[in-house]
Nucleic acid binder design. Structure first.
Lengths: 211, 211
DNA sequence: ACCTGAACACCGTTCAAGT
DNA sequence: ACCTGAACACCGTTCAAGT
């Protein structure tokens, strides 16, 4: 699904795409990540083999496995999620962060889509046999989400909106709040759910943007 | 810190604790998890070495690494949890609220119990056909939880710890945070899960107990 | 600059063998 | 029943060597 996106994204590039190892590695990684199998891990050798490239070559283009995963997820998100206005200082920091957090929430959707989303997550990671492989796959996903939030908070810290040393803690905090909201969206909702969610998100952001 | 707790918890046990491999393994795991070093991982060999036990012996008592981690986290929570009454003004309001919220969290349990708990909720209220009856049944349960939190906040408001008019909003907020934590307890957990959860809960309570 | 593949130090799990 | 430690199949990273 996403592999074409990655290609398109680099359209105005050198010459023969299939001759470009970096491209092939990135495409292979995106393919593995967007595989139907939720538990698929992004191992060095799996990616290298799929891209028809040596381990050393992979490492040359992506010095660490984290850099590779980040690049692949970034490529996916760049296509799927509209960019957040985190640097638009004409808008209050509070509103920018709320809007950014909503881009994560919206990947889960609402109503029946939110329910399908949670059902799938619970099936894959809660009900399924708890293997180490599954755990690592899940933690990699969580990590990406938290890092995204950290990215926003770091940007806001650069504008003096919060202390830089609290970025990690507060990103985890916001991640938990988003998990709570996501779960609540899937569960039966009260009539005032939208208002409650809005207030909760604002309260969480208030707590985050404070010395 | 927690190592003694694990010992105490098994006080009425066999004979010589230091001769009990299972005890030593559990203690070693708890020590590593409650280590200050946030990067500490719970590897088989690290635990086995620390416990002065072979890898095989460790596997005999804890067939998978997950079971070991679950047992260690359970041991930690069993000690951390004891509830402080909300009206005991000799304890800081902050601590009283955290302790009270933990009593709700602990109804969900940890590890396999937390997973069974979430699986059951999702099955009953997310996957099941969304009837009005189901919705009302669920909202009644939620209401009960939120009302409990409101009760605590009202008590604290009476002591001047927060404005009375914000009690409803903030109870909803805390409910969302608890939902997030509950979900995270059921999903695969990182090695630093205990610390992260503690910080998140404190941050949420900080946000609540503020004008 | 780009690529190769062996080597290294890890990981969790399995298992024949001991007591 | 409890324990041992080697072996296995992985993992991510490093690096001398090629082109």
């Amino acid at each position: 699904v996403y592999r074409y996106a990655v290609l398109v994204q680099n359209e105005g590039m050198p010459t023969d795409v299939m001759r470009n190892a970096r491209q092939r590695i990135l495409i292979a990684a995106v393919e593995i990540l967007s595989d139907d199998n939720a538990a698929s891990r992004l191992s060095v050798r799996a990616v290298a083999t799929r891209a028809n490239v040596s381990v050393g070559s992979l490492r040359h283009h992506f010095p660490t496995q984290r850099m590779l995963r980040d690049a692949a997820l970034q490529a996916i998100y760049d296509v799927v999620v509209p960019a957040a206005p985190i640097d638009d200082t004409s808008i209050p920091a509070h509103d920018r962060l709320v809007a950014s957090l909503r881009t994560i929430l919206d990947t889960g959707g609402h109503a029946s889509r939110a329910r399908a989303s949670i059902a799938s997550i619970v099936e894959s990671f809660v009900i399924a046999e708890q293997t180490e492989e599954l755990r690592e796959a899940y933690l990699a996903i969580v990590d990406e989400g938290v890092r995204r939030i950290e990215g926003w908070l770091t940007a806001l810290a650069g504008q003096g909106e919060l202390p830089l040393e609290h970025v990690a803690d507060r990103a985890q905090f916001l991640d938990t709040v988003l998990n709570g909201i996501t779960l609540q969206r899937a569960l039966p909702v009260a009539d005032d759910a939208v208002r409650v969610e809005e207030r909760t998100l604002r309260l969480a952001v208030d707590a985050t943007l404070r010395p």
